[in-house]
């Protein structure tokens, strides 16, 4: 099957992922030398088992499943942050993974973080200059702009991260339970821009435990159970399967 680059955002073919967790911290040269003949057997955790699918450009794609079902691992694999063990993931465009924070250095000021993040997301300096004020005002951090963010509260950091993501976001956004940032007033604002600037225009992969959110925004939903892709299709069926599992 020839894949149309214009139409497809992410393709996953035969992907699987297993984590090997060793009992003690077995990662120094010294330990390796001393245990040359009795290497401890690491525990295997099959986080994702063989799956195949693609995400179209401009689509809002939902990921649901219970804790430990592999949602977050799948999001990271699709975003290109984790490598897969088998198969391949092809990503057409820049990606950004958002859970409570985005990638920010605590040693840098808010201003520097905006420029670094913006640049990593693919913007040119001039383009960042243009959205800079919007980012600062949206995050409500005007008077702390030249403060290192290690002195920020967790709420302030979350707001800054969210604001960068909204105004400078990547082409493909992975949102892991993000509509819970900040106080109620900020959340309302967040949901508004979420609907306005992401749902129309960007490819969004939404990871959530809130079935209302999933049903409201997602055209297609993947339902995961113990690392297996149990269902992929319309939101209604996937949500019902998830609810049935929880009973």
């Amino acid at each position: 099957m020839e894949l149309n680059k214009e139409k497809v955002a992410v393709i996953a073919r035969n992907i699987s992922k297993t984590f090997y967790i060793s009992e003690d911290s077995y990662n120094t040269v010294k330990k390796r030398l001393f245990n040359l003949f009795n290497t401890p057997k690491p525990k295997e955790v099959a986080a994702l088992k063989m799956m195949n699918f693609q995400i179209d450009r401009g689509e809002c794609f939902g990921l649901i499943g219970r804790n430990g079902s592999g949602k977050s691992t799948l999001a990271r694999v699709l975003a290109g942050v984790y490598p897969t063990d088998t198969g391949y993931v092809k990503i057409n465009g820049s990606t950004m993974l958002m859970n409570l924070g985005v990638g920010m250095s605590h040693e840098l000021t808010a201003r520097e973080n905006i420029y670094v993040s913006g640049s990593v997301l693919g913007l040119k300096i001039k383009e960042i200059d243009k959205v800079f004020d919007k980012i600062v005002d949206f995050a409500e951090l005007r008077e702390f702009i030249d403060t290192k963010i290690k002195f920020f509260s967790s709420g302030m950091i979350a707001r800054l991260g969210f604001s960068i993501a909204v105004n400078a976001g990547a082409e493909i956004m992975f949102l892991d339970e993000i509509l819970t940032v900040g106080d109620i007033k900020f959340q309302e604002k967040a949901i508004k821009v979420f609907e306005k600037s992401w749902i129309d225009g960007k490819t969004v992969i939404l990871v959530s435990h809130s079935m209302d959110v999933i049903k409201k925004y997602c055209q297609r939903v993947a339902y995961l159970k113990n690392g297996v892709l149990e269902y992929l299709g319309d939101a209604e069926t996937a949500v019902n399967m998830y609810i049935a599992e929880n009973k």
Binding site: A79, I91, S94, T95, L97, G103, M104, V116, V120
Partner: peptide, 10 residues
């Protein structure tokens, strides 16, 4: 520098 590659495909 984990913050640079942990959330994106940089």
């Amino acid at each position: 520098k984990k913050y640079l590659y942990e959330y994106t495909n940089m």
